[in-house]
Amino acid sequence: MIQYIKDILSGIKNLLLGMKITMINFIRKPITECYPENRGVKVYSPRFRGELIMPHNANNEHKCTGCGICQMNCPNGTITVKTKQVEIGDGKTKKVLDQYLYDLGSCTFCGLCTMGCPQKAIVWSNNFEHSVYRREKLVNQLNREGSKQEEKKPVTPPTVEKKVEAPKAEETKDVNPNNQ
């Protein structure tokens, strides 16, 4: 009999505990994001993978050397790197990037391309509004018209290099939105 009453009382206590927890959630602000209204207000994590972009600096220069590691890394054949040979004088030729084609339709956003890139020439942007009316429009050319490869920095001691690197990173960030 005593056990029976004890059971009932502990049951009531536990039920009230559960109701308290739901009431705390009831009073809490809803976590729902109203999407089209919060455009430009909501801040996404920098690690959020929206789409692949190739940052260009103010002189319309990118960092891609056309090595093709990203193309080889890509499990889906999403990336096609087309290169061409150009004369650079003295009878020498150099391989430069002609077209960097990125098929958004088959990208799984695994990130193997950006991880493997030795020049950090391609990065992820936060833009996720990709919808288009035709499938062909999903294939984008990431390097801009008339862009060329950035001149390599002269080899400098590590102390100086740090100073040079820091503003450069900011510069590329600033350029990012232009490319989206």
Partner: peptide, 13 residues
């Protein structure tokens, strides 16, 4: 609406 609030949602809006 209330069920949505209990689940931290907004409900029909």
């Amino acid at each position: 609406k209330i069920c949505a609030r209990f689940q931290c949602r907004l409900g029909p809006n």
